[in-house]
Amino acid sequence: MEKFYDYIYYNSGLEWIVNVNILISLLFLLLILLLILFILYLRVYKNLRNIKKAEHVEKLTDFINGYLFDTEFEEASIEEFRAHHVRSKLQKKVTTKEILIYSQNFKGEANASIKKLFFRLELDGLAFKEIASRKWYLRARGMHTVSNMGIKIQESTAVRLLNDKRVEVRLQSLLYFIKLSQKYPLNFLYRLEEPLTIWQQIHIEDALKGYKEEIPDFSKWLNHKQPTVIGFCIKQISAFDQYENVEKVIPFLEHPEEMLKKEAVRCMRKMGNHESVDIVLTNFASENNTIKKEILKLIKEVGSYNQLQTLSYELNGDNEEIKIEYLKAEEYFLK
């Protein structure tokens, strides 16, 4: 190598610029080689890790199935399994994941037993560590684990994560509140400072479908500082037929925020509120197309033909979408 170096620099008889080029080319070649080696190392590392994971899952599944279904299963083997197979971080992570899958697929006695096993394998410690982590995906995973295993964490920590800067952590935190609150599943909304995303709203709606206690009064959050929370509550008022709250939704028909106005018009339509039609007709001309379409749908479903006719001037306008919506409503009345 030294000879080669000497040749390049002293004896090649080439221009210095050519020598520099050769040197840089060699340097890049070396970098490429290093990069290839690094990629190969990562592949090998990942494959070995996957093999280890698969082996652990295999052992774990046999152990859990024995624990759940084998009448001759010895309690002492839990401690033995923990000491030998739930030691490293990877083993704890894989075990937690598998236990969560079991708990999601089983109900009744098997579900209760699997939750007991989670604690006996001392996996709650890892969840607490993850919750305190600076990495957002670990915080989200930790919250997912505690909410599914029914572990209560400190109120202040849960509230902090509810307003985390990452939406994924916020989602897991609100699911934690819904799953662990026995009586007031939506009280976390009082503490929510960040916007409620559509995805989060879908999760809350889904969780409420299986909720066996009394559904909360959604008017409690109609003065929330987050418009997304108000919009969600207006939607839920109609979804759960909370007719006693209609009066509280009516002011939103004239709200400056488009999304809230749209939700309020939709709510009135779903709840068949006739009085709201006159209110929305007053400002119809100044509304944008989205709201106009919603109003025309409202008139079609709960209004009268006379009320629709007061908007006939729209047929002379340029907006095709509104004309079509108007004609649909007219067709409905004249049928």
Partner: peptide, 13 residues
């Protein structure tokens, strides 16, 4: 796979 293994184990038992 988890459901398969559990069902297999339980039904074999």
């Amino acid at each position: 796979p988890m459901v398969v293994k559990s069902l297999e184990f339980k039904l074999n038992k």
